[in-house]
């Protein structure tokens, strides 16, 4: 039982570390580039911005959920 818990914690720590690196890269590449464009959109075309805001957050949610699921499978698969 203890061995299994230790393996789960280790897998989670590795997943978190890989996830953190990917997220930091995402901050600087995607969000930095999107910032000015979204600002212009928010200022001049509110309705388009509102619809895009929902699409962006849902899109990111699906993407990150798939990424974390993939990482969990990958790490657990290797540790077993």
């Amino acid at each position: 039982m203890k061995k299994e818990t230790a393996r789960t914690v280790r897998a989670f720590a590795i997943e978190l570390a890989i996830y953190a690196v990917l997220v930091i890269a995402y901050f600087f590449l995607v969000l930095h580039l999107l910032g000015q464009w979204l600002y212009e959109l928010e200022t001049h075309r509110r309705y388009t911005y509102a619809a895009l805001a929902i699409l962006l957050i849902i899109g990111q949610a699906v993407l990150l959920e798939s990424l974390t699921t993939f990482l969990i499978r990958l790490i657990r698969g290797r540790s077993e």
Partner: peptide, 27 residues
């Protein structure tokens, strides 16, 4: 989503902040 759209039209949503917050929330 309905509330977000309504607030975004009124100029109350900074989607970049929400996206950054969500990277932690997803885990």
């Amino acid at each position: 989503s309905y509330g977000t759209f309504s607030h975004a039209v009124k100029g109350n949503v900074d989607i970049l902040i929400a996206l950054v917050m969500h990277t932690g929330a997803a885990i």
